[in-house]
Design a protein around this nucleic acid. Sequence first.
DNA 1: ATTTTCTATATCAGTTCTATATATGACGTT
DNA 2: AACGTCATATATAGAACTGATATAGAAAAT
Lengths: 193, 193
Amino acid sequence: MNVRTFCLGALSFGDASGYEIKKMAEEGLFSHFIEASFGSIYPALTKMTEDGLLTCRAENQSGKPDKKVYSITQEGLAEMKSALTIFPRKDKFKSEFLFIMLLSGHLDEVHVRKVLEQRTNEMAEELEQIEACAELAKNPGTKFVNGYGRALFNAAVDYLHQQENFEPGLADVGSDEHSTTGWHEEQKPQAAE
Amino acid sequence: MNVRTFCLGALSFGDASGYEIKKMAEEGLFSHFIEASFGSIYPALTKMTEDGLLTCRAENQSGKPDKKVYSITQEGLAEMKSALTIFPRKDKFKSEFLFIMLLSGHLDEVHVRKVLEQRTNEMAEELEQIEACAELAKNPGTKFVNGYGRALFNAAVDYLHQQENFEPGLADVGSDEHSTTGWHEEQKPQAAE
DNA sequence: ATTTTCTATATCAGTTCTATATATGACGTT
DNA sequence: AACGTCATATATAGAACTGATATAGAAAAT
């Protein structure tokens, strides 16, 4: 799924400007599984307007730059439906936090503990934000994704609280330093061939 | 965090080729929160070898292309530590699946149900894969991330099972079609000004 | 009074992804 | 026996996207 489809989906909920679409990706009901930057949103909106998938009207605002409000057309709705009638690929989850925790044995213990504590607080806050959105989810689709978010963030916060006393370290007693990954053990280079 | 840091981290567990690093990002203990493609890994390894962060030896393999096995140097380890001694930014989670579910009211009901069913099965399989890795996690870091993965995937699979009978629809009875997003309600365009 | 934050659009360099090309061995299958 | 497909292994071009920056006035905070 690309930025075009995201913008079409966002506009299917109602007219919006590029700035507002960006905010939808940052806050609100589906901020937790969408990413998009101005650098991709603005060109996409311009291109799609040229292609007839959107219409654009400039709303004059005294002082501020004109707000360009986009509406989705019938062609846009059709394109959106066709782009979403697929079997979705695997979710993409990238976590700097988990990478730091993974390699915490190489890092300063005090820093790791601070990172863990901060992340626990951040996640708890985000969970609250999602829960605050729950009542705004009124149709089956929005309810589903809000419920999914609550379930996942709840699990994450629970786990982080359980790990409050985490202690980094390179390996368990009696373990070889280089046998802790579990990756493709069967393919590990044999010493002699 | 960029591909460079990912490669350094991967190589801190032991020597590997570009192909093997890619597999670490696809399978194994930390496949669930790392993404990286050949198109970024190979150039990164070449560049870092030039920069003295890695060393490279070519392993001749009859028939197959030579395997370039990389080792991390002291400089590489230092760069890794400095790159990881930060406060991590927000996790990035992108889900085509949730976007389809969000807009399921616009889509074919039969298709949506198939998507939901397939995803439930896929997630259950992935959970099993993570659980199978659990015993291979031997140091605090790997245990932490494996536990986190299990907690999250467990929650996701539970939620998906609860939603087996999901029925897509555009809005609840009595709801205005355009009032279901909950985004910036306070800024919604006033009809007249 | 001054700084910061928010609204709002826009662009660009750098980064990363997707898809493809190459080459070979192993394995199944028609 | 020929064929397709899968796994190993490296590499790259082009598309897509991000992150940072620029501009500029209003509002809020200090």
